[in-house]
Design a protein around this nucleic acid. Structure first.
Lengths: 409, 409
DNA sequence: TCGTATTTGTAAAAATTTTTAATAACTAAA
DNA sequence: TTTAGTTATTAAAAATTTTTACAAATACGA
C-alpha cells in the first residue's frame, strides 16, 4: 500500500498547519535524498524546527513507510542518536531514453539504486504516431513485467532528442502533432505522471550526479558523439535558458571553413570537432590516397563508423590517430571559450569519441591552455567519462526523482 | 536613531522563536524591496503565515521605522486594506566605481532612490597603497559631506576592474598586497561593512535591474568599451563561476588572425570586435591612405579616441561607419555563440561603442541571424543601452542593497 | 440614504510548537 | 565496576501561532 503522504502532497486545499507539515516533511525527505541519513538533532538544526516537532514528522513518515530507522550513529561521546533515512523501495521512478535506433528503460528506487534496466530495445524513431505508440507499448510492458503497484511508481521521465520544454511538457522536434503537451499523451497511455527531458540534459545530470562535484556545482558536460551536445549545470541545477534550448555548443561559429554543417550553416564547431568531422576527415584522406588499416576492413567507406576509427587508433593506426588529434585540438579551442565564459569547476567530456582517451584529451588540453586565459582555466578540471552509453535513462530517473523530491527546482 | 532590527540580524545567539521572527521580518523586507508595497493579506499568503502574525511583524517593523503605512489600496469590493512598504530613508547604501582615471560614488536609500551622486572625481588608479588610501579618503569625505549617521549606512560596495572574489573580499588584480582581504582594509579605514565587486558585473546588475526582464531572468550584458566585458544573469542572479572569473567573453578564440590581443593571445574576439579594434581599424586605414574627417582634426593618430570615431560616424564619415560595421559584424558572430549556448531572453549591448547605434546594431543583428540557430535566437531580444557611463556605482549600490536585504544570494 | 455583500483588522479561543526539565543511554576514566 | 560527563529521547509546562468569530470599513444597488 502506498502512503498517504504522496496523496497529501497534491491536495492543495489544506489549512495552514497541515500545509506546513507537508512542506516540512518534503524538506526532510529532500534532505534524506541528498544526505542518505540524518539524526533528529541534525534535522532540527538544519530547518530550525524543534526536536519534538521533527520527531513527530519522522514518526509519521515512518508510519507511512517512507522513512525508517537506520540504527545508531557512531558519535564519540554521550548517548548515541538514532539515524533515519529513506526506505529504499517505498517508491520507484522510471526513466526512458528514446534513441534513434533503440530504447533504454531504467527503474530506480528512492535511494537511487537501479532496480531494473533494459537496454537496446529494438525501436525505430520516426516522427509519427505509430512510433510514439511503440514507446508507450514498451514502457507498459516494462512496467507489467515487474510486480510493482503502479501507485508506487511516482513518475516516468522520457528523454527525447531535440527541443523540449520540460516545464510545459511540449516536444518541438518529435511527436509534435497534438495540441496537448506530449507529456499528457504519455500520461493518458500509461497512467503515471510523465515528464519530458532533452536527452543531453538528462545524460549530463547523470554525469554530474556521480559525486565529483564540490559545493558550488558549476560544471559542463560535453557529449561528443556524431554531433556535439552540451549540458550546463549552474549552482547544482541544470540550466535551460528561456525556452529550454540552451547548450547548442556544436553550432557556435568559430571556423572560417566551407564545410556545411548538419544545421545548414558554415563554420560551426561541429564541422571540425565532432564524430561527423572525424568520419569525414578519415574518409576524405583515404579517398586522397592515404593508407589505413581501415581500407582493408571496409570496402565501402560509408560503412566506417565512429567506433571503428577509435578502435583502429587504439591499434596504432596513424591516420586515425591524427584525425582524432585534429578533433581534440579543435574541440579544445571551443572548450577554451566555454572556460573563459563559465569559469566552471569541472568539464566532463563524454560520448563515443571520448573513448579515444589520450588521443583526444592531450591535444584537447593543450588547445585549452593555448586558447583560454590561464587565470581562468587554472580552476577547471577536465576529465573524460567512459560511462555506459545507456546512462541517459538512468539520468532521466535521477532527474525525475530529484525534481519530485524537490531537491532540484 | 537606527532600529534594533539590524543589530538583531547579526546576533547569532537567539533562540528558535526569536530567530524565526528575524527571518520572517527579513523576508518581509525583501518582499517590499522587490514589490514596493503589499497588504498584510498578501504577505500572509506569500509566506504561509497567519494574518495576526504578519500583523505583529509589520507593527514591530513600523516601530523600528523600517516600514510604514502607504495608505489604502484600491481593490474593487469590500473593506480596503492598508498597504505597507519600506521607509525610504531608514537606511542607505553607498556604491563606488573605481575607474582608471576617476572615481564615481553614489548613495541610494532603501527604495533605490539616488540620494547623492558624485561623478568624475579626479583619481589615478595605481597598484599601490597610496592609490588605495586615496579611495578611502574620497569615500570618507563623501560620507562626511552628508548629515547621515554612519550606523544608517548599511554598507559600501566597491567596484574594481579585474579579478575579484566577492565572497571572500579578496582582490587579485589590484591592491593585492595585504594578507587580509581587501574588503577588511576598507572596513577598518571607513568603519562601515564593505563588499568588493567586479566592475562589469556591478554595471550589468544595474542594467538588468532596469525592469526589462521577465520572470525567468536569464540575460546577458555585453559591455563594449576598449575591451569587451560580459555580465551573466542566470535565474535573476549574477553568475560568478568557480572563483568569480566568469564572463571573459572578450578573450574567446574565434578568429584566425595574427593580431596580438591585450591578453597576449591571438584570435580573441577582442582583436576584431572591441573599441581597441575599432581604433586600430581606423588608424590603420588612414595610415594606408584612406581619407576621413578625422585626418583634419587630429595631427597625431594616437590621439583619436573611441568617442571621436563614433561622433565622426554620426556625421557620415564613411571610413568610421565601415569600421563600426565591421566591429558589429564580428561582435555579432561572437554574440551568436552566446545565444546558442545560453538561449537568453535578453542581451543588452552597452559601453561606449553602443553609442554608435544602428551602425553597430544592424550588422550585429544580421550576423546573429547568420551565425546562430534560428530556433534558439528567436527567443532573444537584443537591445542597445545608452545609459550614463557612471551607472556602475549605482550598480554597486543596488547589488549591495539586494544582497543585504537577501533578495539575491 | 440605507441595507447588503464583501473584505479587512482585531480579540479571544483553540491548537500547535517550543522550551524546559527529567530521564534514559552511552563513553571513558577512576 | 562505578561514577562523572555527555548526548538523546520523552513528558510536561510555557509560549507562540493559528483559527475562529466578530466588528469595522467600503462599494453598490435598491
Amino acid at each position: 500500500m502506498t502512503s498517504n503522504f504522496f496523496k497529501d502532497i497534491h491536495e492543495a486545499t489544506k489549512n495552514g498547519v497541515a500545509y506546513k507539515n507537508i512542506r516540512l516533511k518534503k524538506k526532510i525527505l529532500a534532505y534524506f535524498a541528498t544526505n542518505e541519513t540524518a539524526t533528529i538533532a541534525e534535522l532540527s538544526k538544519e530547518f530550525n524546527i524543534s526536536i519534538p516537532k521533527i520527531n513527530e514528522c519522522i514518526t509519521e513518515l515512518s508510519e507511512d513507510e517512507l522513512v525508517k530507522d537506520y540504527g545508531k550513529s557512531t558519535s564519540a561521546v554521550g548517548r548515541k542518536p538514532n539515524t533515519y533515512g529513506l526506505v529504499a523501495n517505498s517508491a520507484y521512478f522510471i526513466g526512458v531514453q528514446v534513441g534513434s535506433e533503440n530504447l533504454s528503460i531504467s527503474m530506480i528506487n528512492m535511494k537511487k539504486d537501479i532496480v531494473s534496466k533494459k537496454d537496446n530495445i529494438p525501436y525505430v524513431l520516426e516522427n509519427n504516431e505509430e512510433s510514439l505508440l511503440a514507446i508507450c507499448k514498451e514502457i507498459n510492458q516494462f512496467i507489467d513485467k515487474h510486480n510493482i503497484l503502479k501507485a508506487k511508481i511516482l513518475g516516468i521521465g522520457i528523454n527525447l532528442s531535440g527541443r523540449i520544454n520540460y516545464r510545459t511538457g511540449y516536444s518541438y522536434s518529435y511527436f509534435n502533432f497534438y495540441e496537448d503537451p506530449l507529456s499528457k499523451f504519455f500520461e493518458e497511455n500509461i497512467g503515471i505522471p510523465t515528464f519530458l527531458e532533452n536527452d543531453t540534459k538528462a545524460l549530463s545530470y547523470a554525469e554530474f550526479s556521480s559525486g565529483i562535484l564540490s559545493e558550488e556545482k558549476d560544471a559542463l558536460f560535453v557529449n561528443v558523439d556524431n554531433g556535439i551536445g552540451l549540458g550546463i549545470m549552474i549552482n547544482g541545477q541544470l540550466y535551460y535558458g528561456k525556452s529550454g534550448f540552451s547548450g547548442e555548443f556544436g553550432h557556435i561559429s568559430i571556423f572560417d571553413n566551407d564545410i556545411i554543417c548538419k544545421c545548414g550553416k558554415k563554420g560551426c564547431l561541429e564541422t571540425e570537432a565532432s564524430g561527423y568531422a572525424l568520419i569525414r576527415l578519415v574518409t576524405e584522406q583515404i579517398n586522397n590516397g592515404a593508407t589505413s588499416s581501415l581500407t582493408k576492413k571496409f570496402k565501402k567507406l560509408e560503412d566506417i563508423k565512429l567506433n571503428d576509427i577509435i578502435a583502429a587508433a587504439k591499434k596504432d593506426d596513424n591516420l586515425c590517430i591524427e584525425a582524432i588529434n585534429h578533433i581534440g585540438d579543435k574541440l579544445g579551442r571551443g572548450i577554451a571559450s566555454l572556460i573563459n565564459i563559465f569559469n566552471p569547476e569541472l568539464i566532463i567530456i563524454g560520448g563515443v569519441v571520448a573513448k579515444s582517451e589520450e588521443y583526444l584529451s592531450l591535444p584537447l588540453k593543450n588547445a585549452v591552455n593555448k586558447y583560454s586565459l590561464s587565470t581562468v582555466n587554472r580552476d577547471t578540471k577536465i576529465i573524460l567519462s567512459f560511462k555506459n552509453e545507456n546512462l541517459a535513462s538512468y539520468g532521466a530517473c535521477l532527474l525525475l526523482r530529484d525534481r519530485l523530491l524537490n531537491i532540484t527546482d
